[in-house]
């Protein structure tokens, strides 16, 4: 049935936006946790852990996010399992984002001058204690602007899960545009919703960066 674009369509878009936000939040938390572990592996002195981390980061950063989504969505079929759409989408984005979080935080950790490690090891702190009490507090400052900046990418990346049918705001827009035949108008709304979510994060990222640059 073709119908006019109206208030119920906007509500439907907003419910899709809700799923976009939920998926983004899950991705940031899950991707952040895995990314942190990968970052630690990447800076560890173990050649094996370091190597695994490097390959993991390089491979994922050389793969389109859409392919990660496809592989995670269709992959479990090998075992005769079919993942529901939300877990599949979330898992794919967590894996994809973790590589980028890992690189951002590795860079931040390594930006802390070497003597800080040396000084703290002289205080007889273990490696983890050095990291926890000396290095990370300094690294967090450096990492904050790119982390918030990458959160914008996370939100935008969730849009590709619509291609496998997860009903986020992009998919909702597609469905409405099929039903109303007013694609341009519908996608303007979709774009506006993304902008409202992402723009504040971009501004915050820039503000933090400026603040730190001034203080430095």
């Amino acid at each position: 049935m073709i119908h006019q674009f109206g208030i119920h369509d906007i509500l439907y878009l907003l419910s899709g936006a809700g799923w976009t936000l939920i998926l983004s939040a899950v991705t940031m938390i899950g991707g952040g946790m895995i990314g942190f572990c990968v970052a630690l592996m990447r800076i560890s002195s173990s050649h094996v852990l370091h190597g695994i981390a490097v390959v993991y980061i390089e491979l994922i950063q050389s793969t389109p996010v859409l392919m990660v989504v496809f592989l995670v969505y269709f992959g479990p079929g090998i075992f005769g399992i079919e993942l529901p759409k939300f877990p599949a989408a979330a898992l794919a984005l967590v894996v994809y984002s973790s590589a980028f979080f890992a690189e951002i935080w590795r860079g931040a950790i390594q930006s802390v001058p070497r003597p800080q490690w040396e000084a703290s090891s002289a205080l007889a702190l273990t490696w983890l204690q050095q990291l926890r009490y000396v290095i990370l507090p300094q690294a967090v400052r450096v990492s904050l602007p790119p982390t918030v900046g990458f959160m914008v990418q996370v939100v935008k990346n969730t849009s590709v899960t619509s291609i496998v049918g997860f009903v986020d705001v992009s998919r909702a827009g597609q469905l409405i545009s099929n039903a109303t035949f007013q694609p341009f108008r519908v996608y303007l709304w979709v774009a506006a919703i993304y902008f409202v979510i992402c723009y504040p994060m971009s501004v915050i990222s820039r503000r933090i960066e400026r603040k730190f640059n001034v203080r430095r």
């Binding site: 914008v152 935008k156 849009s159 992009s170 979709v190 774009a191 993304y194 902008f195 992402c198 971009s202």
Partner: peptide
């Protein structure tokens, strides 16, 4: 920079 490429393509 604050909207997805997917939506830009559709638009």
């Amino acid at each position: 920079r604050n909207t997805p490429l997917l939506v830009q393509v559709f638009l």
